[in-house]
């Protein structure tokens, strides 16, 4: 049995260290070693986006990143979206607009939506749809998700 690798990272702003095997994905590390199960595995092949996180601010599928690649980098997950007891407006609007049914895709959609709004504060519906094309939802037909993201963009622009 090969020894694991010690990795130092920042996760949701907190310095975090973990030991993992080189073959483990960042998603496996988050879920199985760090207890951050908000990121989900829907496919393991980058096709569903349920495992979406940010790596140094960039949106990625954590199932396609090795745990060891997180060395010295910043990881953002759904668990870090809210600021204490105040939800991120995307989180509030997903609830308000009924943008989730089963909710398994929701963490990935929130992370991807935030990545979109961080770089484009006034996206068109089409831009929202293409920015979220890497996140599969099988419950909603995306209708209420797009509306929730649009409402959030409007709200954030007013701030």
């Amino acid at each position: 049995m090969m020894a694991g690798t010690l990795v130092s990272t920042m996760i949701n702003g907190d310095a975090t260290e973990f030991v993992c095997q080189t073959g483990e994905t960042l998603l496996e590390v988050l879920r199985n070693r760090l207890g951050l199960t908000g990121s989900k595995e829907g496919c393991g092949t980058g096709d569903c986006g349920a495992c979406s996180v940010t790596l140094d601010g960039r949106l990625v599928c954590s199932c396609l990143v090795l745990g060891v690649e997180a060395q010295g980098r910043e990881v953002g997950t759904v668990e870090g979206l809210a600021d204490g007891d105040s939800l991120h407006p995307l989180q509030s609007n997903f609830i308000k607009h009924a943008a989730l049914q089963c909710g398994i895709c929701t963490p990935g959609f929130l992370i991807a939506s935030k990545a979109l709004l961080d770089r484009n504060s006034n996206p068109t519906d089409e831009e929202i749809r293409f920015a979220l094309a890497g996140n599969l939802c099988r419950c909603t037909g995306y209708d209420k998700i797009v509306r929730a993201v649009r409402a959030t963009a409007t709200e954030l622009r007013k701030k």
Binding site: L55, R58, L59, V60, L64, V65, L116, G134
Partner: peptide
């Protein structure tokens, strides 16, 4: 090639 997630990698 792929989604925004894939694009970033």
């Amino acid at each position: 090639i792929g989604s925004d997630q894939i694009q970033n990698r």
